[in-house]
Design a protein around this nucleic acid. Structure first.
Lengths: 345, 345
DNA sequence: CTGAAAGCGCTTACAG
DNA sequence: CTGAAAGCGCTTACAG
């Protein structure tokens, strides 16, 4: 460790007091031009960098946001983080990042405490709602003195949440398959302790039922989001549901596995079997065949969360405005490709 | 903002001095058991959380690492970040995350300054080396008072770097295709201003030349890493290199696009055309056909970087040991699948 | 236009 | 075992 240069060193060398240096680095107007110049020269000569910790301490403002994420090795969480960090930098916030050891972890307390100890001005809880992994947070929510924005979970009163409308996405997928003439539409879901997985499943279920098509929970087989599990689920479905002529798969990766397994069993896609995925990963346009998918804009999800959080923090908000917690729902979009458009139709 | 509880509030309420509270929260032994209990009770009652900023200021220790990344929306950077954060949390470090607006950006200076102002103890430069995007950092390296670990770039004296051996990976891919009996092996590279792309290309080139096979820069077409560009590059190659019987593609996503385009042009994979990718993304095992690929462990890359950085910082290092900057090379691994194993061989 | 004093919320010697 | 004093590196009133 080299001895750090402090504001005192600059002040001494420029023969002014430290608060004149402070005025210079904060671009205050009330400094003689000649003094300003001299101070800047010393700052550059010494390569002085003001200590942001000291500044935060006195200003009671850290300009830092905390993010708690999970499963960063997967596409979704990292897309979301990408959106968060972009928007945060654009708004002048730094990001303190924490990751849960795994999706189901309910050891979020120490992570939350670390963030709060470091005086973050707000927190984004970017962990999908799975089972009761959110309870520890709800539990201590009333003890947390900074605003929290939740991502991707169900509506709760008094809580700010941003989420993609997964139920609508499920409906869009199912409706599209119906429109294309498919009548026996199965589902490969995500793990059913995931809120997102259940929403997509319900969208599929409700749409089929409302259309008067035969539908049953038996026609829905869960995977674990992985390509391998999609292949396995498809094999189960083939055994269980011989009439099946289409399948809505809850993410693109499982859809890839499902198409792979169906192909090996002699199904031609889309003629024997229509397939729709979920997520809109760019590679899906190059699967064999190109995959129809319900696209969700997770980067938009992330940046929306940061904007909401900034409002909730309120430094940029007029004093007479009050932040109202609310639920923001993002609309997914259907990308239609070969996998769901039979040649005969 | 609720009025924050400070150590003074706890001290007053527990009728002790603030340094006794300090002793309790830092688990110092020299506190009477009865006092300790009383203080803890007050801490819990007031839900007191020590301010980490104040602590860092006096202890001259932030327990924070800075990470500069780019392109988090892509698989590679987010895998690497995943490895970094895991290891950082395991070692008790928090992470301050910054992202360059795009890969080529050379506006890294403000990001670096923000990190240093916040007193990070070390920095991981997790940006691939592209063109001269590293120069701004090299430029001010001598002014930076904390250790930096670079990821994924060429060897430089006096600089600590961790990288996958991309040259070796290129060699492994080419050698494997030769071993499988292919003789006219083309290459789809990444953008050639990327160091990684050039390394993989050279590995391919050298291996073919050493094997006495015909090889030329003309047989190498660059893509931009995207699936779409892989398809396009393959179309070019088909026109340019009619004898081609195999291709080494510099990442799995372009390999997907390349297989897609080749398939449309009537090539059967692997019999008419052998294909090897790079990265080892899990989905590659489910491509049509399953893709042989050179796998790189980017999470290992990230965690290795954190371990190195921790050594360089030196709080856990005996005083008589000196940290020697060095170059750590990670070995990739070949996953052999259908796309490169002709049925006739 | 500039500086002496006080303080943000902690920890580190130093007394007793 | 416990507390009064000093200080980490800044900024914020307050004088002049």
């Amino acid at each position: 460790m080299k001895g750090k240069i402090t504001i005192r060193d600059v002040a001494d060398m420029a023969r002014v007091s430290n608060q004149t240096v402070s005025r210079v680095i904060n671009n205050r107007p009330d400094v003689a031009e000649e003094t300003r110049q001299r101070v800047w020269q010393v700052i550059e000569a010494l390569n002085y960098r003001p200590n942001a910790l000291a500044r935060s301490l006195i200003q009671q403002r850290s300009l830092t946001l905390g993010v708690i994420t999970a499963g960063l090795q997967f596409l979704g969480p990292s897309q979301t983080l990408n959106g968060i960090i972009r928007q945060a930098e654009a708004m002048g916030y730094s990001l303190l990042l924490k990751e849960l050891p795994h999706f189901h972890s309910n050891h979020s307390r120490p992570l939350l405490n670390t963030l709060l100890a470091r005086q973050v001005e707000g927190i984004i809880w970017a962990v999908p709602e799975i089972g009761d992994n959110r309870y520890p947070i709800d539990d201590q929510l009333h003890q947390v003195s900074v605003p929290i924005i939740y991502l991707t979970m169900r509506k709760l009163p008094g809580v700010s949440t941003v989420a993609v409308d997964n139920y609508l996405g499920g409906r869009m997928a199912a409706q599209h398959l119906i429109d294309q003439g498919y009548r026996h539409i199965a589902h490969i879901s995500g793990p059913l302790d995931w809120w997102e997985a259940r929403q997509r499943q319900w969208g599929w279920f409700d749409t089929l039922r409302e259309a008067g098509l035969s539908v049953s929970e038996k026609y829905s087989v869960p995977g674990d989001w992985s390509t391998a599990s999609g292949a396995q689920a498809m094999t189960h479905l083939i055994g269980r549901y011989p009439d099946m002529d289409a399948v809505f798969v809850a993410n693109d990766q499982m859809a890839l596995g499902a198409m792979h397994a169906a192909h090996r069993r002699g199904y031609r896609i889309p003629d024997d079997l229509g397939v729709v995925g979920f997520d809109g990963m760019p590679e899906a346009a190059y699967f064999a065949p190109p995959l129809t998918t319900v696209s969700q804009d997770l980067r938009e999800l992330g940046s929306t969360a940061v904007r909401q959080l900034s409002h909730a923090i309120g430094f940029d908000r007029p004093d007479d405005l009050v932040f109202e917690p609310g639920y923001i729902s993002l609309r997914p979009e259907l990308y239609i490709r070969e996998s769901s458009v039979p040649n005969s139709s």
